[in-house]
Design a protein around this nucleic acid. Structure first.
Length: 627
RNA sequence: GCCCCGGUAGCUCAGGGGAUAGAGCUCUGGUUUCCUAAACCAGCGGUCACAGGUUCAAAUCCUGUCCGGGGUACCA
């Protein structure tokens, strides 16, 4: 109804509803606007109210009300952010890595976005249950078990179990991929040949002058053919790489049946085989240590980590229950849930009796419903799983979870700077930790360069520099992700995320450090300042602009939560930091003309610092006192 | 084939019925005896893919077309 003015000339806020209202009432919009203003009497809140153009209502907030609100925020831990009237219970499902594999770039978005949403919802007064639905029960453990039995380096395992297990996983994975790839090769070649002849035939049929529709079909066939060729070439290159490696090719030959053997190990585990279960229990803590180390560094925590294995016992019963209630039925030997308005069913038990992730997800909804009684469950998962969630939510509807908001908070793919999915030059996925290390390394260079260039000489010790670099590097990585609309794909670029200018964590952290620097230099007692009830003065345009923005934090948080988009919060923080920079440039603080003005400006500085700190904290990003 | 998402400045992206479409980067110019110049200020840069439609008003909603990405029952 009322939103920030698009243009500063129009005041602080504007309301546009007089125009559609006028249309509906059949009265001139300007007249309606005047009537609205007569009725709601804005004089208490606004110093200037005007009707502009066809019927825009432009509002300028009274300075005394701004000052009053700033004073209240200064004395409040929460900076004046109200709690919601009707708190809800949210279960937020995010991160969810496969624990046997190292975390990679694909886990950043889910982890970082989910964590930020938890923090914001909590601050607003909601009850939030964060749950890391890890993959701890899948084929990857069959691979590790297989590798453990045949390729274990005992000394390495004693020394560093996590690394050794990761090595085993990668090795077995490589062998499995080789055999599967080799097996698929004839099929791929066959398909390619079919496509080629189909294209030729269509070309002949089309004749000299194909119509538009035919041209389109031909182009599509050509594209498909091209990508099939590419896929085949890639596959062949991968196989050749193994063949050319004498050690690997030897292993490949020795383990011809590895694919089925791995599946057998997995099946034994799921069936409760004692030895495999023992190994699984032995491996799991090491795997969890590994991901927890990354979470520790990212500053991400979970209330619960209930992975796939937790739901193992609940899968059979839920399928039986759905069969009994006629929600699911058998089809081609599999158990499916069919939907009236969709042609594709959701499978919940395979022909061979194994369960699928749809099964686990249904069991998970039931468990969460029984345990937490949530009002909403948010799944922070990438957009490619959209159809899975449509199915899952539709199934939940059939089962009867009517008062439960189920929401796929989807996000796009992380791309490399070439615009293709982010990979190393060799085509491997990039480990999350190496990303963190590289971001921190580059941050270290920036921090050192800045510190060296300070007019009065460097201020930071080596240790401080390292800490600052860690905070700046990881903050940059997170912020780059959060500042983009989650639904779009995003290009991963160290240079962009660590830029000292523009909408980055670094810029925000710098703005914060500059404020803190003022307080250090002026020997200001912050606690005394906050309780001093010093009057805030908003005479300079830069002061007033900053003040208005400071009071918009709560608005920004509401926007963030409305569609679960953290970029609403980063946009706010960037605007705030900008206005602060302008203020900092134009309004001397420590050397203000009068003591009263100095106190007033110190309060504005303090509020800015606290707002930036809180805002970044809600995004899971730390600040530093000096940089 | 069908379904979902996208196409906005040279680049990276916001905005998703409301006033003259914004920001950052890049480029050009300016600002420092003064609290962190990692700053600030100003300027250059647009057929919001295309064509229709709805509306007082469309980048935004609807339909169609083109281009790109993703998905499409026994992986997750």
């Amino acid at each position: 109804m009322v939103k920030p003015a698009a243009n500063a000339d129009h005041g602080d806020y504007q309301a546009n509803f007089a125009m559609p209202l006028g249309k509906r009432l059949g009265r001139p919009p300007r007249e309606v606007a005047a009537e609205i203003l007569r009725q709601i009497r804005m004089e208490d809140l606004c110093q200037q109210v005007e009707i502009a153009g066809p019927g825009f209502i432009n509002l300028r907030v009274r300075d005394d009300r701004l000052i009053e609100r700033l004073g209240a925020a200064a004395g409040d831990e929460r900076l004046g952010i109200p709690k919601v009237d009707n708190p809800r219970t949210y279960v937020i499902d995010y991160s969810a890595p496969n624990v046997a594999k190292p975390m990679h770039v694909g886990h950043i978005r889910s982890t970082v976005i989910g964590d930020a949403l938890c923090r914001v919802l909590r601050l607003l007064g909601h009850r939030v249950v964060s749950d890391n639905h890890i993959g701890d029960w899948g084929t990857q453990f069959g691979m590790i078990i297989y590798g453990y039995r045949r390729f274990l380096d005992e000394a390495a395992y004693r020394d560093s179990p996590v690394e050794e297990l990761a090595r085993l996983y990668r090795l077995v994975r490589q062998l499995v991929d080789y055999h599967n790839g080799k097996a698929k090769l004839p099929e791929m070649q066959q398909k390619l040949a079919t496509q080629e002849s189909a294209l030729q035939q269509r070309k002949v049929e089309a004749g000299e002058k194909p119509d538009k529709k035919t041209r389109k079909t031909l182009r599509k066939l050509e594209n498909d053919l091209e990508s099939a060729r590419k896929q085949l070439a890639e596959q062949q290159a991968k196989l050749a790489a193994v063949d050319d490696d004498p050690e690997l090719s030897k292993l490949v030959a020795e383990h011809a049946e590895i694919s089925s053997a791995v599946l057998a190990e997995t099946a034994k585990l799921h069936a409760g085989d004692e030895e495999n279960l023992r190994l699984w229990r032995e491996f799991l803590p090491a795997c969890e240590d590994e991901i927890n180390r990354v979470y520790g560094r990212l500053g991400v925590t979970f209330d619960h980590t209930l992975g796939e294995s937790f739901y193992n016992d609940r899968l059979g019963p839920i399928v039986d229950d759905l069969l009994e209630r006629k929600i699911a039925r058998e089809s081609d030997g599999a158990i499916c849930i069919f939907f009236p308005d969709r042609d594709v069913p959701m499978l919940i038990r395979k022909q061979d009796g194994a369960f699928l992730y749809a099964t686990t997800d249904l069991a998970t909804i039931r468990y969460r419903q029984e345990t937490f009684q949530p009002d909403a469950i948010l799944y922070v998962v990438d957009f490619r799983q959209g159809m899975h969630f449509e199915h899952l939510f539709a199934a939940a509807g059939l089962i009867g979870y009517d008062d439960l908001e189920l929401r796929h908070v989807s996000f796009g793919t992380v791309m490399g700077e070439d615009g293709r999915p982010f990979k190393t030059r060799e085509g491997d996925t990039v480990g999350l930790e190496s990303l963190l290390n590289e971001a921190v390394r580059r941050a270290g260079q920036i921090v050192a360069a800045n510190d060296d260039a300070k007019p009065d000489g460097a201020e930071l010790s080596e240790q401080q520099r390292r800490q600052v670099a860690e905070t700046v590097g990881i903050g940059a990585l997170k912020y780059a992700d959060l500042s983009q609309n989650r639904t779009s794909d995003y290009k991963f670029s160290y240079d962009k995320m660590l830029a000292t200018v523009g909408n980055t964590a670094t810029y925000m952290q710098y703005a914060y450090a500059r404020v803190r620097s003022i307080f250090r230099r002026g020997n200001v007692d912050v606690d005394a300042l906050r309780t001093s009830a010093a009057a805030i003065v908003l005479d300079a345009p830069a002061e007033r602009a900053l003040a208005v923005e400071l009071l918009r934090l709560s608005e920004a948080l509401d926007l963030t939560v409305a569609d679960y988009r953290p970029n609403q919060l980063t946009a706010y923080l960037f605007e705030l930091a900008n206005r602060y920079s302008t203020f900092f440039d134009q309004c001397p603080v420590l050397k203000a003309e009068t003591d009263g003005l100095r106190q007033s400006r110190l309060l504005l500085c303090d509020l800015t610092a606290r707002t930036i700190k809180l805002g970044l904290e809600l995004l899971g990003i730390d600040v530093v006192e000096q940089m």
